[in-house]
């Protein structure tokens, strides 16, 4: 079974993110780039599918500037068989629909039985690409999955999505798109052997032109990025615990009217 995993390279969660000189982009100096954590769950799940079935291929796909290859190489080091890089710096600031069109075109070329990706990338936080890819391909899709099992015959998958207050288990025909929620699995570290082996694996490079997709002209335009206004300074309520608590409850009710 061929499984495609869509991954995005994003700034590390612990990185300080600042607005760049162009207010429509962040300042990229000093940023540590990582594979978006939810996408790592997707990679891990794809590897487990291959291991469980004893056969198959895991292909990691991403788009963006040259440095995106680092993210793809981490996927290869984790165990993906090969990677596809849609090399175009414009993809970095693209809206989700543009990204989804590019990725859908790659998927059409690759014709996998299953597409996995994270529930959202932790930079733009839109969480739309997986579902949009499914829509563009006319495939079913299940978002925020917490578990997954492919039927032995490889024709369907049973997956559980997290909804408010419940887990809903569905049978879906393949091919389909699943987006991974935390809790699906615990991603492995790439082993040293995996890292050393990654450089021998193929990263196929494509241009948007090869895919017939126009990456200019987003449907959603970024006007500007802004730093969040800082919260007004708070106050520490002093005193013995008993008095402090009494005062806290009073201000919550009388000043803040929060309860």
């Amino acid at each position: 079974m061929k499984v495609l995993v869509l991954v995005k390279q994003v700034p590390d969660t612990a990185t300080q993110v600042k607005v760049g000189s162009d207010p429509r982009a962040i300042a990229t100096t000093g940023i540590t780039w990582i594979v978006s954590p939810y996408d790592e769950f997707a990679v891990e799940e794809a590897l487990r599918i291959r291991e469980k079935r004893g056969t198959g291929e895991v292909v990691a796909v991403s788009g963006g500037p040259e440095r995106v290859k680092e993210a793809l190489r981490s996927c290869l080091a984790m165990g993906a068989d090969r990677a596809v890089h849609v090399l175009d710096p414009a993809l970095e600031g693209a809206d989700t629909l543009t990204t989804a069109r590019v990725l859908a075109a790659v998927i059409q070329q690759e014709a996998p039985q299953l597409v996995l990706t994270g529930r959202q990338a932790i930079d733009d936080d839109t969480g739309a690409v997986g579902a949009q890819v499914a829509e563009l391909l006319g495939w079913p899709c299940l978002s925020w999955i917490m578990e997954e099992a492919i039927a032995e015959d490889g024709a369907t998958v049973r997956a559980g999505r997290q909804v408010e207050g419940a887990l809903e288990l569905f049978d879906l025909p393949l091919p389909c798109v699943l987006t991974a929620q935390k809790g699906l699995n615990e991603p492995r570290y790439p082993t040293l052997k995996g890292i050393m082996g990654a450089k021998k694996k193929e990263i196929k490079e494509l241009g948007p032109g090869d895919l017939g997709v126009n990456v200019d002209g987003p449907q959603l335009e970024l006007v500007r990025l802004e730093a969040l206004p800082p919260r007004p300074p708070g106050r520490i309520i002093p005193g013995e615990p008993k008095e402090a608590v009494r005062e806290l409850v009073r201000v919550l009710r009388e000043e803040a009217k929060a309860i």
Partner: peptide
């Protein structure tokens, strides 16, 4: 921003070919 609307609106945006401002 609920489990189903999040996905629904993303798919709908792709279907209609328009932008989605999420969250």
């Amino acid at each position: 921003v609920t489990s189903r609307h999040r996905e629904l609106m993303a798919r709908l945006a792709a279907r209609l070919g328009v932008g989605l401002a999420a969250d």
